[in-house]
Design a protein around this nucleic acid. Sequence first.
RNA 1: GGGCCGCUAGCUCAUCUGGUAGAGCACCUGCCUUUUAAGCAGGUGGUGCUGGGUUCAAGUCCCGGGCGGCUCACCA
Length: 500
Amino acid sequence: MSDRDNTKEGGRERDIRIEKLARLREMGINPYPYRFQRTHSIEEVRKGEETLLPEEVEIAIAGRIMSARGHGHTSFGNIKDDTGSIQFYIKDADVDEKTWALYKMTDIGDIAGIWGVLFRTRTEELTVKVRKIELLSKAILPLPEKYHGLQDKELRYRRRYVDLIVNDEVMEVFRTRTLIIDTVRDYLRQHNFLEVETPILQPLYGGAMARPFVTHHNTLDMTLYLRIADELYLKRLVVGGMERVFEFCKDFRNEGMDRSHNPEFTMLECYAAYWDYNDMMGFLEEMYARVCEKVLGTTSIKYGEHEIDLAPPWKRLTFFRSLEEKTGVDLTVADVAEIEKVAKKHNIDIGGVTGRGALLDELFSELVEPGLIQPTFITDHPVEISPLAKMHRSTEGLVERFEPYIAGFEVANAFTELNDPIDQRARFEDQVRMRKEGADDMHPIDEDYLRALEHGMPPTGGLGVGIDRMVMLLTDSSSIRDVILFPQMRPEHGREADKD
RNA sequence: GGGCCGCUAGCUCAUCUGGUAGAGCACCUGCCUUUUAAGCAGGUGGUGCUGGGUUCAAGUCCCGGGCGGCUCACCA
C-alpha cells in the first residue's frame, strides 16, 4: 500500500480542511491544543438545568461538532460527548470577533470546547448560548452523511471509530457488552470466585476440540499455540488450592468464520471445587437471569423473531432423550450401524463423519439444536465427545455434562470435571487414536496436566460461557461482528497488503 | 469452499435494451439574528473496486482477480 492511497481519502474536502489548518495557525490558533477544563458533561448539564439555567451559570463542555445550521449572523449546531448531545447557539453580536471567525472555520466533525450559558429556544430545546469556543482537534476527514449515516457494513467494521461516532446504537451495544461483563464478574466475586490470568501462549493447546493458531518463540526457538481454551490451566489452579477461580478468556480458534464465529472470541471459564454439574446448572441459569435483569430490567428478551424467557429454572433434557423425541429411538446404547441407519432415515448427510460420538453429535445438531429456542439444558452427553468430563454416576457410556441452548445457540458448556488421573489418561489416549483415524481437532495429551491430576483435584464443577453470544442475545444482534469492536477482516486491498 | 447479491463523488443512492455519469447530504461562494434532515441562489468534486476482452463506442456485455454482505457447507 502506498501513501497515495491514503492521501486520496476524503477527496477535496480533506484538502480544504488541511488548508484551514494553516489559516488557523496564521490566526494564532493551535488546532491541536493540549487540554481543556470541562465543568460538566452534557448529561450533567441536562441534569443540572434547574440551577444552571436560571442562574446563568457559565459552563464549559467539550465534544464533537455533529451538525451546524447557519443563519447568517447566528448559527445552531449540536455537540456530542460521551454522555449525550446538546444544541448550541452562537450569535456574532454575542461573541468577540476572533471567536466568530474561529466558529466560521470549524467544521462538522471537529472536536471543540464551548463556554456558554443555558437557555431554552422557542421550541423549548435546551441550548447552550456560546460565549467562547476553543478548537480542540481539527478533523480533516468529513463525517458520513447526517441522515443515513454510515450504512455500509464493511466500512462500519473496518472503521469502527466512525461507526461509533455516527451510529449511537453501536455505542450502546458496546456499553452493554461492558455492563454484561461487569455484571458477570460481580456475580462471580459475590460467590467468592478469584479472578486469575493464565497463558495465552501455550506450548500445548487443549481444553476444547478445535484447530489452533500456531506461532513461534524466537529466543526459546519453540512452537507455541494461541490458546483455544484456558480450562486445563484453571483446573491446575484448583489442584493448587484455588477452590473457586475464573478468567475472562480471549480464545483463538483457527476455523471457519460466520455469523456466530470469530477467530478470536471471549469465553468465561469458572471452576468450583466440591460442586458437580447440577450445582453449576443452577449457578449458570441464575447468572444469566441476573445479568439479563441488570441489562434489560427483565428476564424476557426479544431475539430476532423470538420471545425468550430467561427466568430460571430452565428446561432440562438429556442428550439421548432429546434425540429420542425427534427419532423415536433410544440411542443410548446403539452402535454405529444403528445410528447410521437413523441418520439415513432422517436424510442426514454423514459423509466424513467418523466415530460414534461424532455421529450422535451430527444427529443432534441437525435434529435437535435448531429447535432449542427457549433456554434448555441438554445434559449427559456421550463420553466420546467429552474427554474432560467425569463418567456419569449412574449411566454407563455417558458423562456428567450440560450445554444450555438459547435461540438455537449453544451458550455454555459445563461438566462435573474428570479428576481421576487414570481415566483422564485413557480418555486422552482415545483422543489420540481418533486423531490418527482422521479427526484433526482431537485433544492432544497434556502430560503436565495429568501430573497435576495425579496430585489430586477435588471434585469440581466447571463452566465455560460464550460471552460474545451472551452479548448477541441481550442486544438482539444477529452477527458476532456486531458485538466485537474490531471483527477479523481481510486486508482492504487484498493479499498485496500482506506483503512486507 | 459452493450459491446468490453488491462495489459509481467524503456518505446514502440513481443512471432502462451499450452512446465517455447524476441527485440528496457534506464541501465552497452569496443571502439569511431561535433553527433542528433550517431555507434560498449559484458552484466545485468521479481511476465507476481492479486487470483483460468484445465493440466505432463499456459503469453497462464477456472473462480473470480483489473486498464485502447474505446463505449453505465445514466447524462447537
